[in-house]
Design a protein around this nucleic acid. Structure first.
Lengths: 224, 224
DNA sequence: TTTTATTAAACTAACGTTTGATTTTATTAA
DNA sequence: TTAATAAAATCAAACGTTAGTTTAATAAAA
């Protein structure tokens, strides 16, 4: 029984190690994909970056393309929204929920810059249909969630009528995305080139949050 | 003299034809780059799409990469702003100028969807330094122009103080870009799948313009 | 002993580019 | 105007390189 237990533990550890190795390869791939794009990143580069043998990529993922899909599956697990739970909280006011949605989204993008860059390019190209399918599902659930939130606010007479929820969401995603892309310019323009990575994130988060909060107040017709 | 004139006309026509051929190749390249990305589009595909021999691309542009640069030079000529002239108009109110800026930008993106998709991906990857240089210059002039516009409005006491011009511009570009990317979803969601291409452009323009106008009123603190 | 993981090397297909022959167009001199 | 000549444009084929993937041998683990 103890032996069996040990074996199980060992097997468990091994499986974990394999999973970690796969994750490690995905991290390297993500880095390169964000820097140079999917097509321009070679499996040899990815293997070098991850310090594994070239053949391991086919061995673990099947192909370069399936590795990309694995990356999306891996990263999109963490994309489930805090707000989806908070939405059901009866005591929280609707605009408080909007604030949490904004905060949550901004944080996620700033924490996963590389992935959101890849995401952006994939959405433009629409080459990998499996990824497009995943993204469509995510977008629909996001839109449905926000629609419910807006309806709740309208019912409680704190949001105005005739709100274009998709346009609102696109302003949120678009603004954050553009800031990620233009990060350097934005810093230069504001003379804050000396900030550390973490300080910079904090600065951008604060700027984006205030900016989008004001915009959403207008869009939703909310008076604080 | 007449002969000389004829020769000049002939020479002129020939040069025009070559220019047209180059433009035609660039149109085909643009289409493919927007669909599949730069790296995933092969010069053979581009040549096929343009109905020219494979070797003509090196012959005309030097290389695939230089062809991309030619595409950017070609397309960015038309990116100069109407507003840059209108800005000097003393009689037009500041927010009227903002409206023209928004209208102008939305129109340009909707009329050149393919190019703006390529533009987006290039900004993410930052691979071709010559293109990045061109874009930085464009962005700086755009920001400077809008800064002047904002200052004018502040001087005339119709805009509020402490406006983050870059954040405002990123909301403009980001929102329009996201709508281009999510065009299909947006149409599905609004049940307008049956529209013709031109009608759809008109619909999107109208939606985006009203949306951004309201947002910019808030950002600039403008009361109509 | 069997399964799993790792490797260096090889494989095939496709890439961007170049070549050299050929056709088309332009220029020049009779 | 015409014939000869020079230049530019076009093409099929080939070039060398590199891509993603597979193989078959070896090492490690179960």
């Amino acid at each position: 029984m103890i032996l069996l237990n040990n074996c199980l533990v060992l097997r468990f550890n091994l499986k974990m190690e394999v999973k970690d190795k796969k994750k490690h390869i995905l991290d390297s791939a993500e880095k390169l994909f964000a820097m140079k794009g999917f097509e321009a990143s070679t499996v040899r580069e990815i293997a070098d970056e991850a310090n594994v043998n070239l053949a391991m990529i086919s061995y673990y993922f099947g192909s370069k393309e399936k590795m990309m899909e694995s990356l999306f599956q891996e990263r999109m697990i963490n994309t489930k929204l805090k707000v989806e739970q908070l939405l059901k909280n009866e005591h929280m006011p609707p605009f408080g929920k909007v604030e949490i949605m904004l905060d949550d989204y901004i944080k996620k993008v700033l924490e996963n810059e590389a992935f959101y860059k890849i995401l952006l390019c994939e959405q433009v190209m629409k080459k990998n249909l499996e990824i497009i399918r995943m993204l469509k599902e995510l977008k629909l659930s996001y839109a449905a969630m926000f629609t419910d939130l807006v309806k709740e606010g309208q019912k409680k007479k704190v949001f105005k009528k005739n709100i274009d929820v998709l346009l609102a969401l696109n302003t949120m995603t678009g603004t954050v995305t553009q800031i990620i892309i233009n990060k350097e310019h934005y810093c230069e323009f504001n003379n804050i080139e000396v900030l550390q990575e973490e300080e910079l994130k904090h600065f951008l988060h604060s700027k984006l949050f205030d900016h989008l909060k004001n915009i959403f107040k207008t869009i939703l017709g909310y008076e604080s």
